[in-house]
Amino acid sequence: MTKDEHKEGIGGMANPRRYGIERVAYLLMRLSGLGLLAYFVAHIYETSNILRGQVGWDELLEMTSTTEGHIILSIVIGMCVFHTVNGIRVMLGHGGVGVGKPARPDYPYEPASQNYRHKIGIYSAIVLAAFAMMYGLAVLFGE
């Protein structure tokens, strides 16, 4: 990215404060996507430890049984739920579902695609992810 192009860059792309909850959802979607990818790689590494036999496997399980391990797993649960629910919303939107119908625009030009259905979808994804995380924490720490 050159200075000449005057692009906002990653800082601008990741700034969630200017364009409403839709942009917050955009950022969370990207972060949770990256987080899940990292977890996926770690998970393959983790489960591949079974090749080291019972001892290696038990050692690794112990690592995830720490307080930090539980917190990380709860975050993974939250990311997973948010990414799934919001992903369904975005996929439907990508197919043109729930984005409104073209019409003659009237001042003040409220964009039909930024409608309450999608906002409800975003808030639901956040709330469900929070509940799933709390449930995960309760189960993991209640062991």
Partner: peptide, 26 residues
């Protein structure tokens, strides 16, 4: 396009590009 919708929020003429793009992708 990841349907962030910021384009539609700033459009001063009610074009709603985000809607057009999703319908186009349809």
């Amino acid at each position: 396009c990841h349907f962030a919708g910021s384009c539609s929020q700033v459009c001063p003429k009610g074009v709603d590009p985000a809607m057009g793009i999703q319908l186009l992708r349809g």
